[in-house]
Amino acid sequence: MTKTRTTWLTPQAHDRLRAELADLARAADSDEGVDQDDRATIRRRRQERVREIQELLANAVVGEDPPDDGIAEPGMVLTVRYDDTGDAETFLLGERAAEHGDLEVYSPGSPLGTALTGARPGEQRAYRVPDGSTIRVTLLESVPYGRHRTLGGTTGTR
């Protein structure tokens, strides 16, 4: 049995994805004047994006905050410290394919997202970057997206 992967989305990201899907459907008629090879490439890319958006929307949990238990999971705004530099960063653990406004987004499937999922504040985690080096981070705070927004949260810098 295949497990369906749910995707956490803000209501705004959900609306933007629905609008993009509608735009892609309308764009199917606007390939006039494009040579046949380019038209096929454009059509294929458009169809791939349509499938990606349809999958995101079909499996979306929209605007439901995860429990406010401090555990890092999709839908939480995380603040981490990069232990080697001392720099801090605040970001949403969510779907990168969906725009979430001015807040940086890291996918739960990214190296950083995978390392942090399930972490509690104060826990140190490590992950590898493409060059093979290991980055160590400490989770400082994890709050539901909705609570972060009501507190007037701001994004950190790396």
Rank of each mutant, 00 (worst) to 15 (best):
E99F: 10
G122P: 01
D69K: 01
Q54Y: 04
V137W: 06
D87Q: 14
I42C: 05
Q54I: 09
P67K: 02
A119K: 02
A119E: 01
T138V: 10
G122L: 04
A88L: 13
G122A: 01
L93Y: 00
T114M: 10
D65L: 00
E52Y: 05
T134F: 05
Y127L: 09
R125S: 14
G118M: 04
I42R: 05
E48H: 14
R51N: 14
T138E: 14
A60K: 08
Q124M: 14
D84P: 04
P74T: 02
G75V: 07
G118V: 00
Q36W: 08
R120E: 00
G70I: 02
R81M: 15
V80P: 03
T134P: 06
P66C: 02
V137F: 06
G132Q: 12
A40D: 15
R45L: 13
R45A: 12
E48Y: 10
S133R: 15
A72F: 03
S107G: 12
S110N: 12
D65V: 00
I135K: 13
E89D: 15
G101F: 01
Q124A: 15
A97G: 13
P130V: 11
I135Q: 12
D102Y: 02
R39Q: 07
G122H: 02
P74N: 03
S107T: 12
L92R: 08
Y82M: 11
G109A: 10
A126T: 14
L93R: 01
E48G: 15
T117G: 01
Q124D: 14
D68W: 00
G63I: 00
T138Q: 13
E55S: 10
D35R: 00
T85K: 09
T79L: 11
P66V: 06
E95F: 03
T79D: 07
V129H: 10
V129F: 10
E52T: 08
E99L: 11
R43C: 06
T138H: 04
I42F: 07
R43Y: 01
D87G: 08
P121W: 08
D35N: 09
D68H: 02
Y82C: 09
R125P: 15
D87C: 08
I71N: 00
S133F: 05
G132D: 12
L103S: 09
T90P: 05
Y82H: 13
L112F: 12
F91A: 04
P111Q: 15
P66L: 06
V137L: 10
R136H: 15
E64S: 04
G75K: 06
G101D: 05
Q36N: 05
P121Y: 12
I135T: 15
Q47S: 15
G122I: 02
Q47D: 15
L112R: 08
P66H: 07
E55L: 11
F91E: 04
D35Y: 03
D87F: 13
V137Q: 11
A88D: 13
G101S: 01
L78A: 07
L112V: 11
T117M: 07
D87Y: 13
D131Y: 10
R49C: 07
A40G: 13
D37Q: 14
R45M: 13
V61T: 12
D84T: 10
